[in-house]
Computed example of a mutant assay.
Amino acid sequence: MSEATPIAIYVDADACPVKPEIYKVAERHRLHVFVVANSFMALPREPWIERVIVSGGFDAADDWIAERVARGAIVITSDIALADRCIKAGAEVIGPTGKPFTDASIGMALATRDMMEDLRAMGAASGGPKPFSPKDRSAFLQALDLAIQRLKRAGFIAG
C-alpha cells in the first residue's frame, strides 16, 4: 500500500437512507464519494461527490463498485452479496444501520439472507427489514467515523 493512497467512499445509492450523513462526514474528512445508482438522482454539487449512473442491468451498480474497490475504500451498502465481494477485495463495508460487514460476520449474513429468501419463497416469511430509526442513523455515523479513523491509522490519507 502506498502512503499516498486516498480513502474513498463508494455508496450503493439506490435506497440508501444515509446519503446526507455520508456527505457531511466526507466533507469533514475531505474524502471523495462515488454515488453509484441505476438512475439519475439529485446530489449536492461538490467536486468531491461523483455521480455514477450505470446501465439498468442486473447488479450493474454492484459490479461497478466491486470492480473498483480495494484496501482504503469504504463501501456503504445493505446488499450482502456486494458486501461479500467488497470484503474479499479488502474494502471496509458498512450497512446503513451502522452494522459493519467483516470477514468474521459475512458468512452468517449470507446464510441468513439465503434462509430468509427460502422462507419467503415458501410463503413462511413476509415483510422486510424493520423501519430505519434515529438510533440506526447514529450507529451508522459512529461506524463510518471509526472506519475512517482505522484507515487513517493504517496510513491511508484524506483526498
Rank of each mutant, 00 (worst) to 15 (best):
L31A: 08
I157D: 02
D145M: 03
D84E: 13
L151C: 05
D118Q: 14
C16V: 08
V93M: 04
T97F: 03
T112D: 10
P129D: 07
A60T: 08
R28Q: 07
A139H: 04
P100A: 14
V75R: 01
D118I: 07
A61T: 00
I148E: 02
P131F: 04
G56K: 15
T77Y: 08
S133C: 03
D103N: 10
G127F: 05
W64V: 03
G107M: 06
P17F: 01
G123A: 07
R28A: 13
V35W: 08
A61D: 00
A139L: 01
H29W: 14
A61R: 00
M108R: 14
A37S: 15
R28N: 04
I49G: 05
N38Y: 03
D59R: 08
E117K: 15
S133R: 10
V75Q: 10
V69M: 00
A73Q: 07
K152G: 08
D59E: 14
I9D: 06
F156V: 01
G107V: 09
A13G: 01
K19R: 15
A109Q: 07
C16Y: 00
E46I: 08
D62R: 04
A83M: 01
S138V: 03
F140E: 12
T112L: 15
L141W: 00
P134N: 11
D145Q: 11
Q149D: 12
A154S: 08
D59P: 01
T112P: 06
G90T: 12
T77S: 14
E50D: 13
I94K: 02
P100Y: 13
A111D: 14
H32E: 13
G56F: 06
R85H: 06
P134Q: 09
R153D: 08
S133H: 07
K152H: 09
A66N: 02
A60F: 07
A89N: 10
G98C: 13
A8Y: 00
K99P: 01
M108D: 13
T102I: 07
Q149A: 13
I65R: 04
P6F: 06
G127M: 11
G123S: 13
I106M: 00
E21W: 09
F101T: 03
D114Y: 09
D136C: 09
A111F: 12
L146C: 10
E46Q: 15
E3G: 14
A147C: 00
V54L: 00
D79G: 06
V69W: 03
M115H: 13
I76P: 02
P134G: 09
N38M: 04
M108T: 11
L82P: 03
C86K: 00
E67Q: 15
K99M: 13
F140K: 13
G127P: 12
D59M: 11
W48G: 09
I106P: 03
P6W: 06
A83S: 04
F156R: 00
I94T: 07
P96D: 05
G98K: 11
I22M: 05
D118R: 14
R68K: 11
V33Q: 12
M122S: 12
H29S: 05
F140W: 13
A139E: 14
E3F: 15
D118G: 11
P131Y: 06
I148D: 02
T97R: 15
R28I: 02
T5K: 15
A66P: 02
A121P: 07
S105T: 15
A15Q: 02
I94N: 02
A60I: 08
P20H: 12
D118Y: 08
R28L: 09
E117A: 15
A89L: 05
A42N: 10
K99T: 14
R28T: 07
R120Y: 03
I76F: 01
